[in-house]
Design a protein around this nucleic acid. Sequence first.
DNA 1: AGTCTCACCATCTCATTGATATGGTCTCGA
DNA 2: TCGAGACCATATCAATGAGATGGTGAGACT
Lengths: 181, 181
Amino acid sequence: MAEYSPARYVVLGLIARHGPMTPYELKARVEDDIQPFWPILHAQLYRIPPELARDGLLREEAEEAGRRRRIFHLTDAGRTALDRWLADPDTAEAETRDPAQLKLFFADLGEPADIVALAIRQAERHRKWLAHYASLRGALDPSQDSRQRSRARLLRLGVLHERAHAEFWESVAADPDRLDD
Amino acid sequence: MAEYSPARYVVLGLIARHGPMTPYELKARVEDDIQPFWPILHAQLYRIPPELARDGLLREEAEEAGRRRRIFHLTDAGRTALDRWLADPDTAEAETRDPAQLKLFFADLGEPADIVALAIRQAERHRKWLAHYASLRGALDPSQDSRQRSRARLLRLGVLHERAHAEFWESVAADPDRLDD
DNA sequence: AGTCTCACCATCTCATTGATATGGTCTCGA
DNA sequence: TCGAGACCATATCAATGAGATGGTGAGACT
């Protein structure tokens, strides 16, 4: 059984959920919903679907009229691969790349005032994301269907994550040497 | 002024803090302390120092005896570049790549039981990291010096982060449809 | 003394992704 | 009808990812 990168399952999953799609539509959906926990450059979304089609997990269909965009459909093989991935509770470790934590790590090499300036900006940034996730969540009606519930579940993590980080940076701005949680 | 990637400042910072180093020592320090918020493949730590040396930010010195390892020293130009980076409160956005969140995002396409299995593993994983950070923090004496305080500050974020995630996944395992925080 | 073994250390290669520039196409309003 | 701007797609080159491979030296053991 072939091993695919997570980005490929993003493509399979989006098409499974929303129906046949062009790379351009994939790009829009990834930017809106997926970027925060799995960033994908838009160019990738033009490279990946043809590869999946070559492997039989998608089927390409050229638009008849006008722009003749390339529309990708899920095949049975694609659905099977997706199901297998979803059913597997094993996952690779999460990876984070946060330049702000890097600067904090090396803070002892710089001026004490730098920490505060950094912390103020970070707190602001995380507060913004927190508000964003909270408002997205507010717009949902999770009693509706399993898709809304799925979305609400993940947005809850977004809220908790951003809240923890916002509070951390705020506390650093207020007192860089605070020790307790 | 040239723009360097964060990985380069990791190299400059580690050498600034601990003195002249070989790539192998860099590798060990990165794995121990930096991996969680800025992963770097070990091969990079053999590519980057010669590049920084070419640009004058490091100076290479071959070991005299025995293994003749390549030892890299910080130059004045390197120290200046590092200081400028540390003093700049602007940073790029943090990036996260978490396959578990991806599976959670697409959970509505799979079986309800999959969510629970996934959540149990994730909770376990985050609990482990939480214990790890807590114990590292316990081993510090932050009244000592600014380096220990710096370390303690960042470990506090690690603790808060892992706690938030562990609690989230535990709550998902217990009740996948829980809505409140 | 020889040699064995393991930890230590370094580099190379090929595939994949990152970053971004470039360029075509359609719609709509002036 | 002809611009302007949104929509859409691909190409290019650099950087990083992933991991295989191989040398070196110190101490253990015969």
